[in-house]
Design a protein around this nucleic acid. Structure first.
Lengths: 257, 257
DNA sequence: CCGCCAAGCTAACATGTGTCAATAGACGCG
DNA sequence: CGCGTCTATTGACACATGTTAGCTTGGCGG
């Protein structure tokens, strides 16, 4: 169960379908998207910095992030490691459906709204709607592809490049769900958050942020990135968006039937 | 298609079912395992260091590793980043089924044998055998969980600890498929391979290997790890096997019906 | 409006890691 | 058997990052 269900409040208004399954928006028909929306049992609000799913716990529901940011985190010896970031439209703990318990936690970064789906319903989807099931599988594989890119990033980039890469990824993912802004990437991260995503100390993250500013690549203030030169930033980070499977000739609509 | 299909040879002998779907061995009935084995169209041999699947290419088959080791790698600017390791029994590019093209390459470490499965057959599985489909999904989610652990490892451990952690993981995974040895973990890695898994230079990997030797934690010779003290090694790396979902009360046999 | 506290920033020094250069060992091949 | 090549190893030095300490800024509640 959701650990913090008791601190959350029920939503009063309907979901729009706009951000729902935002990541799959380009990959499924609106019929299919509506079907997914129909799986949602209810909506929860969770305040910033609260834990949505505690690692190790058994769960029998999964959650779609409707608004706000969330982290995947692993704790060890009082240190927190951020292993992924999620945006509105991400089916954020779908992994728990097949794994039954998660190896990590999901925490809200700012105030978030999530849609809750019972695993029993997902089991039904597996039986009755193989195409939807495959799309959900695809969504978790996209998480895996992002994980691999982070591994490569941690293996090959220094701290300023890692920060640049993470923001480039987020910008592209926001573009894919239609909520990017050209001049600013609004995000609620502290520099400690940035440090934990990059695997460096908070102090070094600060140095790295300063370096990006000195290089005129962008200015990070209170988590938000202001830049006039995304191309230079992408170049600096060696960012290549193909791992996000955002477009090209391989969208599921064309491939999955 | 398999890029190197022309360099590979057809297998002459039948598969045993022993290592097949080795990772799922504890999670499925022998009936189900035999069904998976039945999906295999043919067998390929691939010589050491050859590429099984080239990243970016469209594929319409996936491969189960029957014998030998394989790496997942990403290339960039003539540098190779190893983002994962696979052992016999791993459904090594099942990700390509839903993704259609892979964001990375699969390369043989030593001489390998793989079983090939057509995606058209997997599509059939999605329609007709939801439980098997879910098990295959599980297998890819296990890859994702391993990716997350690598991210944490790269964010939080220094080079010698990373090496220790990787070998601990491999030992546990070998135990899970019943082919571990208590005194030696036989593996065909060069120190350059180890460096590329850890995200450090080959020279620094050498220093790290030396340090493990000095600390009496283990001796790595030609890729194989000789140790008499796995507990100390696990402790040194902060290794906790729960992310491998090897046992406990959450096996699929009990949970998936 | 004040004051508090978390977040951001800076400096100085220690450790981890990269790079270059050089050498030694292991293996394949003629 | 000896040569050449890939792998492993060592030393010296430069750069990246961690750690500790202290200071500044900004948002927020009283």
């Amino acid at each position: 169960m959701l650990k913090t269900i008791e601190t959350a409040q029920e939503a009063a208004f309907p979901l729009t379908g706009d951000f729902l399954a935002g990541r799959l928006r380009k990959h499924l028909s609106s019929d299919d998207l509506q079907y997914i929306e129909g799986l949602i049992d209810g909506t929860l609000f969770l305040p910033a910095r609260e834990t949505l799913v505690e690692g190790g716990r058994r769960v029998d529901v999964s959650a779609i992030l409707v608004s706000g940011f969330a982290f995947r985190t692993i704790e060890r010896d009082d240190k927190r490691y951020i292993v992924g970031v999620h945006l509105p439209g991400d089916f954020v703990d779908l992994h728990a459906f097949a794994l039954k318990r998660l190896d990590h936690s999901i925490v809200a970064v700012d105030d978030v709204k999530v849609g809750v789906v019972q695993h029993s319903k997902l089991k039904q989807v597996m039986r009755d709607r193989p195409k939807i099931a495959r799309a959900m599988w695809f969504s978790t594989l996209l998480d895996a592809a992002i994980h691999r890119k982070w591994i490569q990033m941690l293996e090959g980039l220094d701290a300023p490049q890692r920060i640049a890469h993470i923001y480039c990824e987020l910008q592209t993912r926001l573009e894919l769900i239609g909520s990017a802004n050209q001049r600013v990437l609004r995000a609620p991260f502290t520099q400690k958050d940035i440090a934990e995503m990059c695997g460096v100390s908070a102090i070094h993250a600060n140095r790295a942020v300063s370096k990006l500013r000195e290089l005129n690549l962008g200015e990070i203030r209170r988590g938000s990135l202001y830049t006039s030169n995304w191309d230079a930033l992408r170049d600096y980070a060696g960012f290549d968006a193909s791992y996000l499977y955002g477009d090209g000739p391989l969208r599921m609509n064309e491939e999955w039937d």
